[in-house]
Amino acid sequence: MPPLLNASGCLDALAAPDVARSLDAFVTKTVTPLPRDGNAPVRIAEIDCGMLNTIGLANPGLDDFVCDTLPRLLELGVPVWVSVGGFRAGDYAESCARLDDEGVEAIELNVSCPNVESPVEATEEIVAAARAATAKPLFTKLSPQLPDVAAVALAAARAGTDGLSLVNTLRGLALDPRTLAPVLSTATGGVSGPVLRPVALAAVHACYAATGLPIVGMGGVETGRHALDLIAAGASACALGTILFRDPDAPARVRAELARTAFRLGLEDPLAARGLAHREAEMPLPSETKIPAKVD
């Protein structure tokens, strides 16, 4: 089975430990070197087929996170991935160096939050700085808004990322129907939910073809079918985001649906679907093969 995670910022494991334990790994909300209150309210808005958020990387800061939050997360008994963010490469390096000795399973480099200022350096430089600071597995989280996400994924691979997290939210805007003013305090926010699904699929598809790296696919996953699509496009793991807001039981449900959906296609393990969207047109799925294939 492909691992099932949460998308960063879509679950607080300390507030809902049972939900965290229903995942194969818990990904923290993004941590920055200094504490951040986050953006002013209003921070969320529903849109057709999705939502907008502008939380703005609210977090207690690296010191408080490592000394107070992380020890409690590690007690939950679920592997912990820490999402780190910042405004320059040095911020990422500082956080990675600090986490290098901690019992975290992996570090996600959030270089693509649409609700705060972008880091000064290019993704490649941030990954290189983080790589020099830690031996932990690094997953670089990219924006689907990049003109050529596969090129940036390749650059991240050259700089030493171990995998990719695809995708972050897209920048979007919602207006109040009564006032025609932006709903969110920052005007624009990150689009997530079902509307993001085809965008995520395209990014995973392109980055798998370009890099072959492990990919955590995310973006509008609500059912096992959606997760299987991401795997077929090239994801090796999936993460749940917006669906967790309305259905904290989603991890168990999606996992069961994923197994059933794959089985119906003749796949014993959903992971066997990885990359199938890239196969030659004449290559059938096991379920399409009337006579079992001969094995020499």
């Binding site: 910022g9 879509c10 679950l11 607080d12 507030a15 809902a16 939900v19 909300k29 986050g38 309210p41 209003v42 921070r43 969320i44 808005a45 939502m51 958020n53 939380i55 609210a58 917006t242 967790l244 807001f245 309305r246 904290p248």
Partner: peptide
């Protein structure tokens, strides 16, 4: 009251 996406501490949307 505040706009709220999840109600159980996950989304950080309801900050006041």
């Amino acid at each position: 009251e505040a706009p709220m996406a999840c109600g159980y501490g996950a989304c950080f949307g309801c900050a006041v």
